[in-house]
Amino acid sequence: MEKKDINEVEKQMNLANDGLSDKEKTLFSDARPQVVPPVHKIFENFRNWARAQSLWMLAFGTGCGAIELRPLMTSRYDMSRYGIAPRPSPRQSSVFIIGGYASLKTIKRIVRSYEQMQGPKFVIALGSCTINGGMYYDSYYTINRIDHYIPVDIYVTGCMPRPESLLAGFNKLKERIRAGRADGMNKYAENFDWYKKNQKRIIKDWNMPDYNW
């Protein structure tokens, strides 16, 4: 019983924000991300439907997968039919597409952008290199599996994945959202310490707040 209480207290505690200077600490929030439970089922179903029908993806080409997003936006594959549109600001977007391998320098920005997105947020990881490193498995600068750093909803395999498979990935994501299973935001909040530990293990100069609100 005691142990659980300590955990509870720890969860209520604010983040340390060790990476920031004293002056910067006043500028950033130190609250922990909280699990937001879904509302009543009927409403939640309706909201999930809206979420699935309007997927705004963050315009952040993190890797070479970004090149297949352009054909996807244009007339041949036209993802806007499915309500998918690019959005330049992380505050407003709900889908994060990890375009392939993430280098050490990019994973820092990925984490930062991901945390700035407002939940519910979904992640699609493209390419073999996000799953197990792909052909860069032995590279010293690319991470091997992305799901240790941010929660991933859908993997689309291939190097490069074709636009068709990307569309299939989007449709699978929609199914997941409609079924209420795409809950990466709450997963991230629940396992926040584990994710943070993994992130800090590779990002050596952590000079941003622990959670980028």
Binding site: T62, G63, C64, Y101, S103, K105, T106, R109, Y136, D138, S139, Y140, Y141, T142
Partner: peptide, 9 residues
């Protein structure tokens, strides 16, 4: 941001 260390690999 896209460094994959090709030359090393």
């Amino acid at each position: 941001y896209l460094h994959r260390a090709f030359e090393k690999l």
